[in-house]
Structures are given as structure tokens and as C-alpha cells.
Amino acid sequence: MANIFQSIRDFFSRIFSSSPSPNGLNNEATTAPLSQTQIEDIDKQSLKSQPPQLIAGSGRHVGRQRDNNEDALFSHTATIAVDSNDVPFGLYIVADGMGGHRNGEIASENAVRAMSSYVLGKLVEPLFGPNPGHPEESLQEIMHDGVIHAHQVIMENAPGGGSTLTAALVMGNQMTVAHVGDSRAYAVYFDGRMQVLTRDHSLVKRLEELGQITSDEAAVHPQKSMLYRALGQGEPSEPDVFNASLPQPGYLLICSDGLWGLVSDDAMFDIITAAPSPHKACQQLVDAANAAGGQDNIAVTLVRMSN
């Protein structure tokens, strides 16, 4: 563990002792604390970092028309820089609950807690334990089993409730995604591509895939949030589990339909690429969803690799 703390110290010491920036902002930075602008400026410059590390931001908001927030999220980022291996590691989850009374909130909270504790539980020993190694199961098996576990927990704790779950486990340059429902994971590339990695498990999306309705019709369809797969609903839902490369340079974006249903891909792309940092971008994405009406709860998390 000492190594980790050392590396964190190294990281901060490097940031604070970084050479003056061309615009001179850092010239006065002899006394702490730095202003937010200064930190952002440094963050943007520190594109090349050693060890490579993940930078994540999150946003969550009740929206403008609901009383309770049924969206839940989880974000965990770790950097391990030791002799044998530098493995940037992170787990990011968005869950969007549904169901009467408080069941939606309970379902999404349980989804996020059950998934994160299951996956981290499997990885803590091989990653952070005294004898690092590799778990018995593959990453896809762990993510798959985590979703099944979350399903069972919701069935017990929130009968009648249900939840979407979109989770990404980033390990090095690649990520393992598990997905049920209509929250989405996107790969956002600086060259302008904004690629939806997940497939919405919604009836309307299915109709669109089958060519029965157009994407314009889908966007305004009255049943557009009706899901044919969700956690906590009857039989365990087989999650979609797949691997993809972490977009580099670019971002991984995970969000609920409270964001992607209200803000166009183009608008999201513009906000993400213009923002000074992932967490700023997330706040602006939430603002954009609220500006568009805020009909639903909003949850978003945004991740990029440092170099």
C-alpha cells in the first residue's frame, strides 16, 4: 500500500511543481491553495502522465419535474503504480430505477451497491492484496455474475421495483461493459465520433431495429421508456457483456435516459469536448438536460485516460 500512497504523493507533487504554463497562469502559483481555474488549467496540460491514470467526473440531479431521484451512480478510480505493472483501474455504474412508491429509488440503490461490492470484492485481493495475481474468473464472468447478483438483491429488497444497470470496468486500455435496460454507454472520440456502445433494451428501440418505426417516431413514442429487460423483474435478465477499447484520446460516457433522452448526441459531444474537466462536463450535461425540461432524473459519469 505504501507504493500507492507514494505514487499519489508523486502525482500531486508533480502537479504543483509543474513548469510555468505558456499563458503565465502558474507564475503566481507560489502559494496554496490554487484557484479552480488554475487546477483546470493544469489538468488540461497534464495530458502526458506517468503512470497513466483515469480521470473521472460524475453528475446526478433529480431533474425539474420529479420529486424523488431514482437514478443512482457509482464511480471508483484507482491507480496502481508498482514495479511489475501499471494498471489504471476503475469501475463506473449508472442505474435508473423504476416502480411505484419508493421502490425505484431502492432498486437502483441496491443495483449499484450490489454490483460494486460484488465486482470490487472479486478484484480487491488480486489488485490490492499482498499477493497480487489474477482472479479465477474472467472479467466478463465477474461482470456478468455481478449483474445476476444485483438482480437477486433487488428481488429481495425492492419487490416490485426494477432498475437498469450499465457498468464499465476499466482495466488498462480496455473495458468490460455489462448492460441491462436503457441507460447507455458511449465512446466519445475527439475526432467527432460519438458511438453508442450499448443497445437499449426498450420496446421502442426494438421496433426501430426491426424497421417498424423510424428513429424520429421512436424519439416521441409514448412508450419510449418501456423496457423488455430490467433488473429485479421476474427471471434474471441476461446482461449484454462485452469488451471494448477505452477511447483514446476520448471519453467513456455512461448516462441515464434523463440525459440522452433530452440532449442530442451532438450537443453532448460539444459540451464534453469543450469542458475543462470531466466533472465540469458532467455538471454542464446535467444543466443541459434541465434546460431541455428536466423531465426525468439525470445521472452521468465521464471517464478518460490521462494520456
Binding site: E137, L139, M171, G172, Q174
Partner: peptide, 27 residues
């Protein structure tokens, strides 16, 4: 290919490993 190395074994499994870290991505 990409970030992964793939191989088969007489144990009846095709393995996909992260080429850099050796973590099993899938079997």
C-alpha cells in the same frame, strides 16, 4: 489483436487475455 491475446488449450477453452496485464477478459 487490439489489447488482447487469444489462444486455445487442450482444456477445451479459448482464452482472451489482456495482452498487457495478463488479466483474463473472457473464456
Amino acid at each position: 489483436g487490439g489489447d488482447a491475446v487469444y489462444f486455445g488449450s487442450m482444456d477445451g477453452t479459448i482464452y482472451a487475455m489482456d495482452a498487457n496485464t495478463g488479466w483474463a477478459i473472457w473464456r
